[in-house]
């Protein structure tokens, strides 16, 4: 596979596909027309050359190489999962073919199912990354960004990247396997440039502003269905970090009680607590500090266990004497 940073700009499957960047730029332009006060920060050199952003740019280059050379080769594809699911269903239930749906209906149903299940698993993986202590150590890398820019999207620890890849293969493979079992090759997807219609449309709606300082909210009603850029920025804020886990849809946050609306949310400060921030100042820190933190956690736990056991042993000895 070729390694080409521009591939990320030319591939519609990527967050920073040029059309998505352009649409975000247009949205940002309109937003700044209405809120001229914010222009000063957005256009400042200080923001774009902030050490956190500089690290993002550098990390992105590292990420491209690492992904092609290490992550992709070990990841199973959704196709393998789909094949496995389909064959398992065949073995279990025999051959089934539902003939009461039209081609158009099957395509529409599949397109929607893929989008919804994918967004659903994305929500839950993201939530787990926050609530499982050792996963949070890896996800901290992403939240250690002090300022945001579209490339912050790629400031993700390789372990997290691997988990998201796995999530993709499993959820897409599952839906595809079930649909192929039921409808065979009539399964298809409505797409724009190969991307799920819904995903493409929602990506156009300023997905690159999620990691930016453009405080664009969608209002109380829409934000119960769609995550606005500002809602994701709120997720990056120290005091609201355990809310707004959603990707495209905020329905999951709404249903599972983790939604924060953007209106009336003030005091947004990106990043982690000061003590933790110092571990994520460079490439080395981003890559290795999660492992060190986890190692320390285990060590502490083991030490505690050792300590408690020794105390008990001592007491036993004393009692025997």
């Amino acid at each position: 596979m070729e390694i080409n940073p521009f591939e990320y700009l030319m591939n519609p499957h990527k967050r920073i596909y040029w059309i998505f960047l352009l649409s975000s730029l247009v949205v940002a332009f309109v937003f700044l027309k209405c809120h001229p006060k914010q222009k000063r920060i957005i256009l400042s050199k200080k923001l774009w050359l902030h050490p956190s952003n500089l690290l993002d740019y550098g990390y992105f280059i590292f990420f491209i190489f690492f992904k092609v050379m290490v992550i992709l080769p070990i990841l199973m594809s959704a196709k393998e999962v789909a094949l496995f699911v389909n064959i398992t269903l065949l073995d279990q239930y025999g051959f089934v073919r539902i003939e009461s749906f039209s081609y158009i209906q099957i395509m529409a149903l599949f397109t929607l199912s893929v989008f919804i299940l994918s967004d659903f698993t994305r929500y839950w993986l993201h939530r787990l990354l926050h609530f499982v202590p050792w996963l949070w150590e890896f996800h901290k890398v992403h939240h250690s960004a002090k300022v945001l820019n579209p490339l912050t999207f790629y400031r993700v620890h390789p372990v997290e990247s691997l988990l998201f890849g796995l999530r993709y293969s499993l959820s897409i493979g599952l839906v595809a396997g079930v649909f192929i079992f039921l409808f065979g090759s009539l399964v298809g997807i409505y797409d724009i440039l190969g991307v799920n219609l819904f995903a493409f449309m929602f990506s156009l709606l300023g997905s690159n502003l999620r990691h930016s300082h453009i405080k664009l909210g969608f209002g109380n009603i829409v934000e119960r269905f769609l995550i606005s850029p500002l809602q994701h920025q709120i997720h990056h804020s120290k005091n609201h970090v355990n809310t707004n886990f959603g990707g495209f849809l905020s329905t999951w946050d709404y249903l599972f009680g983790t939604l924060t609306l953007s209106k009336n949310t003030t005091n947004i400060k990106f990043g982690l607590e000061k003590m933790q921030m110092k571990n994520f100042q460079n490439l080395y820190g981003l890559l290795f500090s999660p492992f060190i933190a986890i190692y320390n956690q285990i060590k502490d736990k083991n030490f505690m266990l050792y300590f408690v056991t020794m105390c008990k042993l001592q007491r036993l000895k004393r009692e025997q004497q």
Partner: peptide, 11 residues
């Protein structure tokens, strides 16, 4: 898209 591994669409 089924045979492709997409962006690690984390957040």
């Amino acid at each position: 898209f089924v045979s492709k591994v997409l962006d690690a669409d984390g957040d």
